[in-house]
Design a protein around this nucleic acid. Structure first.
Length: 99
RNA sequence: CGAGUCGGACGGGCGACCGCGUUGUCGGAGCGAUCCGAUGCCGAGGAAAGUCCGGACUCCACAGGGCAGGGUGGUUGCUAACGGCAACCCGGGGUGACCCGCGGGACAGUGCCACAGAGAACAGACCGCCCGGUGCCUCGUGCACCGGGUAAGGGUGAAACGGCGGUGUAAGAGACCACCAGCGCCCCGGGUGACCGGGGCGGCUAGGUAAACCCCACCCGGAGCAAGACCAAGAGGACCGGCUGUUGUCAUCGGCUGGUCUGCGCGAGCGUUCGAGGGCUGCCCGCCCGAGCUCGCGGGUAGGUCGCUUGAGCCCGUCGGCAACGGCGGGCCUAGAUGGAUGGUCGCCGACUACAGGAUCCGGCUUAUAGCCGAGUCGCUCG
RNA sequence: GCCCCCGUAGCCCAAUCGGCAGAGGCAGGCCCCUUAAAAGGGUCCAAGUGUCGGUUCGAGUCCGACCGGGGGUA
């Protein structure tokens, strides 16, 4: 999988000229699971697993972080434990690079 | 035991914990919309799929005349409707259970039938066969040429104008005869009907293609829930009609009321009685409206509520019907999301988990599908 | 979700009314031209028409069902 994160470092007003329409202190996560992963049943299963896995990891992120998780075709065959391990390593790498 | 056919109102079950969506109740916060917490009910399919048909629903349209366009195609029924379903008929396949069929019309008309072949659609003499004439010679009733007869045979083709036997003949031919196949008409019997069974007569033979145009019968307005309605952004503006006040009347202006249309800026083109464009959801005539219409570029908004799930609904019983289905009685409430809810862990049974996820809702069709269950059929073997 | 459109050589694309099964261009191989290359000329190769079934004597074309791709729509 590929994980992008926009980690808030400055006050929201200086991030961009666009003022966010959501509460800047809450984190947001989006998932991208394309048709290349599989049919509707497989894509939904991958998204559900990722969603529940991310809920447990939100506490470890800085407030206001925006995350996009893109699932690659191999994630269709992966178990929840494998997806969780991938997520952990990707997030660890991102947090280390930002600090 | 093996092979094959059809059907299934089969498509993992039970339990525990954490988490998610709708919603009821209770408690709390807030003027309120609403939010937070606790707890309870419910929470994807037989195909939810493909989007191939048919409806419900919503908006638009709905003086008249004419012409198109699309669909269906045995019969009788069922149904809200259908291209669906049931039963039956006909044709074809299979030893059989059973399966398959776009299954009306080719004397209403038109078109097409390549190549091959002598000839391909009121058929046709290439080789043959037969008769006559002429010529030649090795005189055989031989050969060549000319004229005619002939559709039995050869060969070509997807298809060559019925099959077989006989009479007949110079050779032949439905020319004639018997039987058979096929066509048309009539009569009798059965069936609601498609059609079936039997008998008689006739002329003696008619090619295929309508998933080619077409003819016949029946059906069909257009778009689609991203339909559409309301609120907000944004607030009005334009037009039409009715009533009414001032006035003698009209015009003008004001008030009330009903309806229709419309988001902004810039540029270009066409047009304003020599009429653009629009409406009568295909086109023409005809009628009506008529001063704007079309295109390109740029930026803006893409929030909320409803539609949204009680429905031609499901289950049980009973009655009618061969059946599809329908009537009556009783019972039940069974997802409603809007970036879009089902995941994780564990125990037992079963066994290694098929195809696969709602998006307005139903009735079908088609396609995908591990495994399981049931009912017929055929063959072999044993008792 | 709903509504449309399209599939022919490696690529782009023709094929009239259904008729010998398929034109052309680019690319590729070989030859000629040139000292050599490019350009040019000649020649060859490459499809069985997305798949399956049906109608027909005969299907790229007509009909049906699937498969794949593209577009539009608040």
């Amino acid at each position: 999988m590929v994980v992008h994160a926009l980690i808030r470092r400055e006050p929201a007003g200086e991030l961009h000229s666009t003022t966010p329409t959501w509460d800047a202190s809450t984190s947001r996560v989006g998932f991208v699971v394309s048709k290349a992963v599989g049919g509707a049943v497989i894509r939904h299963r991958v998204t559900r697993r990722l969603r529940h896995l991310m809920v447990d990891r939100l506490a470890g992120l800085p407030a206001g972080t925006q995350v996009v998780v893109r699932a690659l075709p191999a994630s269709a065959a992966a178990s929840s434990a494998e997806l969780g391990a991938d997520l952990d390593s990707a997030l660890r790498k991102l947090l280390r690079g930002s600090s």
